[in-house]
């Protein structure tokens, strides 16, 4: 009764269950990280050109981009991911999740880049055109380099959102961090560890967002234009 080790052990049975399965959970962590990176890449590759089209495109092409964006942003992510996996039959689950999170992120990244492009003074485009650059060259060499720098804070936000939203892949059973924790607390005899498991993976999500935020802040400083007003 007075044995402190035994008392501690009795109190932390659920915690010992958590720590005993760290390797299992970390397997899910890598899926989470991979899914985040892949989705952000898809989002970037789709979102940046979409933003350029939305700003500089013709009436129909920019309207098309805008409307696709409205639909993607207006649909719950759980619906998008279920559609991708079950309705469109994208497989394996990782690919379905990447497509769903990626294109949804693309729709948001379009907004980030569009805002940044529009924030670049119109005189920049005009001067580039006056020197003889084509519109495409002016966008590529003058507008985008400035717009991308201004996109970093918005992108930072998007990274953390996508990172946390990867947990929605639970809906299609993809073995990422959250799904794996659910596997653990749903196994017989361990439902009492639900709270401990959620706390544990939340700490991991927090650590990940903390690290990405710091890295992107460093990136923001690294790409800042010398002499420019601090953004």
């Amino acid at each position: 009764m007075a044995d402190p080790v035994l008392a501690l052990g009795a109190l932390s049975a659920d915690w010992r269950y958590v720590f005993g399965n760290v390797d299992y959970l970390l397997g899910g962590l890598w899926v989470t990280v991979g899914l985040t990176v892949a989705s952000l890449l898809v989002g970037f590759v789709a979102g940046l050109p979409a933003a350029v089209v939305e700003v500089y495109g013709g009436r129909y092409s920019s309207a098309l981009v805008r409307n696709v964006g409205v639909v993607l942003r207006g649909t719950p992510i759980v619906v998008i991911i279920m559609l991708a996996y079950f309705a469109f039959g994208i497989s394996p689950a990782f690919l379905a999740a990447t497509a769903a999170l990626g294109f949804r992120s693309g729709a948001y990244q379009t907004q980030i880049f569009r805002g940044a492009i529009e924030s670049v003074d119109g005189g920049q485009m005009e001067a580039a055109r006056a020197v003889g650059l084509s519109k495409t060259q002016a966008v590529r060499h003058v507008v985008l380099p400035q717009a991308l720098r201004r996109s970093v804070p918005g992108f930072q936000n998007e990274v953390t959102i996508v990172l946390k939203d990867t947990s929605i892949a639970f809906a299609i059973g993809l073995a990422e961090l959250f799904t794996k924790s659910a596997d653990l607390y749903q196994s017989i005899g361990h439902t009492t560890a639900t709270f401990e498991l959620i706390v544990f993976i939340s700490a991991i999500y927090f650590a990940l967002t903390f690290v990405t935020n710091r890295s992107l802040e460093a990136l923001n400083d690294a790409v800042a234009i010398p002499g420019g007003k601090g953004r």
């Binding site: 920049q124 005009e126 001067a127 006056a130 380099p145 400035q146 234009i225 420019g228």
Partner: peptide, 13 residues
């Protein structure tokens, strides 16, 4: 034809 602007419009980056 070269052009010089009132607001300079130098490429900021």
């Amino acid at each position: 034809v070269g052009m010089v602007f009132q607001d300079f419009n130098l490429f900021a980056h």
